[in-house]
Computed example of a mutant assay.
Amino acid sequence: MTVRVIFVSPAIGPELRQARFADEASAYGGGAADGGAPHGGDALDEAGARAARALRPDLPVASRRFASPSARCRRTAEELGLADALAEPALSGCAPGRWRGRTLDEVAAEEPEALMAWLADPAAAPHGGESVRQLCARVAGWLDGTAAGLTGRLLVVAEPDTVRAAAVHALGVPDHAFRRLDVPPLAVVELTGRSGRWNLRLG
Rank of each mutant, 00 (worst) to 15 (best):
P38W: 00
G40K: 01
D45L: 05
A33H: 12
L59V: 07
H39L: 01
D45H: 12
D58Y: 12
P38N: 06
P14Q: 07
P57Q: 07
A27K: 05
D58P: 13
R56F: 11
G30N: 04
G29V: 05
H39T: 09
D23I: 00
A43M: 13
D45T: 02
P10C: 13
A33S: 15
R50S: 05
A52S: 01
Y28L: 11
P14L: 08
Y28E: 13
A33Y: 11
A33R: 15
G30Y: 06
V8T: 02
A11T: 15
D45N: 07
L16P: 03
R56D: 05
G40W: 14
D34A: 11
P10G: 14
E46G: 10
L16F: 06
A25S: 08
G31E: 04
A49F: 01
E24L: 00
G40V: 00
A43E: 02
G36S: 09
R20S: 00
R17E: 05
G48S: 03
A47I: 12
A22L: 05
L16R: 13
G48M: 06
E24M: 00
A51R: 00
D42Q: 06
I6K: 13
R53T: 06
Y28H: 15
G31T: 00
A37Y: 05
E46D: 08
A37T: 15
G35K: 09
S9E: 10
R20L: 00
S9L: 13
R56V: 10
G41M: 04
G41N: 09
G36D: 04
D42W: 04
L59C: 02
A25P: 02
D58F: 14
G36R: 14
